[in-house]
């Protein structure tokens, strides 16, 4: 397992490029937005929407669809870009993000086609995923629930309530992906709660864990295939990522956790992403 053919990989890389350009489009000019965290999970979001998940813009209410929840809701720009790319709404809508009356709000809301839950208050999206996974078990449906959390978000106590509950209910239809970019709003994650050994923490709660390079699409899809094959336990994929990945001047810095692009830096950002 874990091997995809070159053509699939090439197509995924193109999708990842489109998602990154979509993030920049959604961010716009002179409006603050969460560039760094959106870029760090862009490859994971791409792999989910364009390789792994069973979903369709034509039947967004299909009860058997896989569910995706961006628990680190501030990184929703990556999801918006993927949803536009997948045809849930026009790519022209991206530029309306956060403008008055837009269907694309600053954090995920269900009014947006393709968005499953209202998230952004950290820790809560994970638990919503737990509820969806329990519902899948109760209804004997074979959909899978994917949740992206941030490593900074792991400081929320609710994360560990959800981790315990998932194991008790043997939610093997739930995969949580930790976007471990190491940087939160005000600085380095290790300078805050210094959450060491994230895989070990999930494993201690009975989860099956995987560690990947969160920007290596072959690694991501291969590991997601392994994770969804696990039976009897929830799975956590700990993804080593780079905050701002692709926009070199924003990489590994909290300066672009929530910041704006000027016409000049926007051009630089696009050129940087194109050169990836």
């Amino acid at each position: 397992m874990g091997k995809i053919d070159d053509a699939t990989l090439k197509a995924l890389k193109e999708k990842a490029l489109s998602v990154r350009l979509g993030i920049i489009e959604a961010l716009g000019i002179d409006h603050r937005g969460h560039l760094g965290g959106s870029m760090s999970c862009a490859d994971i979001v791409t792999a989910l929407y364009f390789y792994k998940m069973k979903h369709s813009a034509k039947s967004p209410d299909d009860p058997d669809r896989d569910r995706f929840i961006m628990s680190k809701g501030h990184s929703v720009l990556a999801q918006y870009a993927a949803l536009a790319e997948a045809g849930y709404f026009g790519k022209d809508v991206l530029a309306t993000t956060k403008s008055l009356g837009s269907v694309l709000q600053g954090h995920p809301e269900r009014e947006t086609p393709g968005v499953e839950a209202n998230t952004g208050s950290l820790g809560q999206g994970f638990s919503m995923g737990v509820g969806m996974a329990i519902a899948g078990k109760l209804d004997k449906r074979d959909y899978h629930v994917y949740v992206i959390v941030g490593d900074g978000e792991l400081a929320e106590g609710q994360i560990w309530e959800a981790t315990m509950a998932s194991n008790v209910y043997s939610l093997d239809n739930l995969t949580v992906i930790v976007d471990m970019n190491g940087i939160q709003a005000m600085g380095k994650t290790r300078d805050r709660y210094a959450i060491q050994n994230i895989p070990g923490r999930f494993a201690a709660f009975g989860w099956k864990t995987f560690e990947i390079d969160g920007h290596d699409l072959a690694d991501i899809v291969g590991t997601l295939d392994k994770a969804t094959a696990v039976k009897g336990a929830p799975t956590a994929v700990i993804a080593r990522t780079v905050k701002g990945k692709g926009v070199t001047f924003a990489e590994n810095s909290h300066d672009y956790h929530n910041n704006l692009l000027t016409p000049e830096t926007r051009e630089k950002a696009i050129a940087s992403v194109m050169a990836m």
């Binding site: 919503m128 109760l138 106590g157 309530e161």
Partner: peptide, 26 residues
């Protein structure tokens, strides 16, 4: 019992999980 879900002493997770259940028609 198939309609009962014990959520343990974790009220925050219980409420958000309830939201997830409702989003799936429960």
């Amino acid at each position: 019992p198939e309609q009962y879900i014990e959520m343990g002493i974790g009220e925050a997770n219980m409420v958000s999980a309830a939201a997830g259940l409702a989003l799936c028609g429960k």
